[in-house]
Amino acid sequence: MNIFRLTGDLSHLLAIIILLVKIWKTRSCAGISGKSQLLFALVYTTRYLDLVSTYISAYNTFMKLIFICASYATVYLIYMKFKATYDHNHDTFRVEFLILPSFVLSLLINHDFAVLEILWTFSIYLESVAILPQLFLVSKTGEAESITSHYLFALGSYRGLYLLNWIYRYYAESHYDLIAIVAGVVQTVLYCDFFYLYVTKVLKGKKLQLPA
């Protein structure tokens, strides 16, 4: 565990909490892509199947359980409890275009052709693009609430911090995982445009609005 990984994990946790609290407090999931949240639930489920086979640490187990439970809770709030507020007219990204290529790629490029390993690889590939429906929704409506922007910033920062973690581990532990690194770079790059808008607008107290 190094400082980059810890802050990355905490940033990830913060993102999930921000989203849950926002939906709960406002009793609304307007502006949130249910499809991205479904993809994240799929990501955590397929990645953390090793909970039953491999013990790493209490911290690791605890965080995995939190991520899985929180993602299912979010999906429940969007599709069941606050369904009436869900923006399904704008949430029209075709998720099969993300799920199928991720799955095929995980069959082709993986560390080991074993069920758990392929599902882990699939989750890494899918996570890298899972935010696209959310970014698509923001681009369709042309704006995002500040709290949604904070959520996206925390979520995007997490993989960016993991990039620093991977650089650190490469030098400190001679450890690297090319699949995670390449997918992590892709994931972080997808947020760049958003990061720019976040710094130039949201941090200056303005609403995140895209140019018409």
Binding site: K64, D112, Y176
Partner: peptide, 10 residues
């Protein structure tokens, strides 16, 4: 490629 036996990251 130097993949670990287990994936210790989240």
């Amino acid at each position: 490629d130097k993949a670990e036996e287990t994936h210790d990251e989240l």
